[in-house]
Amino acid sequence: MRILLVEDDDLLGDGIRAGLKLADYAVDWVRDGEAARLALLDHAYQACVLDLGLPKRDGLWLLKDLRERGNPLPVLILTARDSSADKIAGLDAGADDYLTKPFDLFELQARLRALIRRAGGSATPRLEHAGVVLEPASKRVSRDGQPVTLSAREFALLLDLLSHKNHIRTRAQLEESLYAWGEETGSNTVEVYIHHLRKKLGAQFIRTVRGLGYRLGDPV
């Protein structure tokens, strides 16, 4: 799960990035609206955490620009103002949720999970396919009721596939989802994690679509 963080404050940006990384998100951090606009054009994100007070292009402008281009990306705005005017302006400009500084890290994580889940078209917090159940909040995965232990990357890969149930995911898409900028990716790491997942969840759970990528296998 890859997240775009737009925050001009060094200390706060560093904290949010560290906090989201702890929840196994891949986080790209930009410090102004212009850089955020370019990042949004070039990459696919699962969600965006956006501070409203930004240099160069402010957060509201960025939101409007994003929505005008028809991008449905879930956006959570951060505001330091108590007044509801800021929140209303943010929500009306296309934000999906907001948090007022200072906020709780767990709350930020939970709100992001909910935003991503809803954007995937699911109202329940459990993702399920062919007997495999994934609970994003508790990071528990089970197969036919038996708990399965996954590494952070394997978990992120499974979450991505379950969030795009009826889609074929290319290797590039999966890589984008797994790694933030500057993180080293091996040439065949996605294949390695797919291999691990098949071993733990069954060979038919993930199908290879030759020449295109991967998708979930047919439900049992």
Binding site: D9, L11, G19, L22, A80, R81, K101, P102
Partner: peptide
Amino acid sequence: HELRTPLAVVRIQAQV
């Protein structure tokens, strides 16, 4: 506003 941002830093970094 000015105090909320450093407080947010302290809080989130403490949790981290």
